[in-house]
Amino acid sequence: MSDHPLFSTRNPWFGISVGITAGVAVLSAVVGLIWLPLLQPHLQLTGVWDAICSAAGVPRAAVQETAVKPDFKTSNVVMTSEMLTKADQVSIGRGATLAQRCAICHGPQGVSDAHSPNLAGQFAAVTYKELNDFKTGARVSVVMSPFAAAMSDQDMKDVAAYYAYLPRVPSNNLDTGRPAPAVVVTGAPMRNIPPCGSCHGDIDNKAGSPWLGGQSVVYIKAQLEAFASGARRNDISQQMRNIARQMTAEEIDQVAHYYEAQP
């Protein structure tokens, strides 16, 4: 072996191997960061530096083009799975006072036979979102819209916290022995219908999806039909319209009766 040090410019092995390795690295960088990005016209790169940044994955906000504006009101509530899950006693107390005006339809304990939704034990995020949508006009009801119009954001949160605090009371049609229809248990995968419970709380809860047990059959049917026809459009990005549109009239009838009989 020679006496030259290994890491030395005088060692040809060292010089050549480092040189070639650096050469391959530079060539790959030029190909990957500059040449290939510039070959893709749809990226609309403005130059070499833009190409390098793009290929290296520097994040940027999407280019704002002129989006088509909706010709109807959409829900403006920002839903998260943690929202309104920790109510304080003051909020519940305020809500109890405010909820007196709701009692004529929704019942003094949040339960009634008036075919209006039973709110006792409803997820707070759900009651809050619907009140908000009534107020902004994303959801329309001759009865509810005027009530919601006068409510502040805090009022809606308090009322929602109060109803979430009340215990669920089964309806008069409770029948836990009633067999669950197929669309509830398994959904209909090829028609884009997941099992109802994967959002509505029986299995898992997606923020904004209501608890359905004990709701009136008339109410559930009316809402599913409104989603299916597009008469109701306050579900964010069509999350419920996509499902209801695919359901048959028979399935809608089955799920409405099934959920009315649940606790």
Binding site: R60, S75, Q238
Partner: peptide
């Protein structure tokens, strides 16, 4: 790499429903 806030897609930008 482009970014968009998943919570507010429905409020503004190119992924609004319409």
């Amino acid at each position: 790499v482009e970014i968009a806030d998943p919570k507010t897609l429905h409020l503004s930008g190119e992924f609004t429903e319409s």
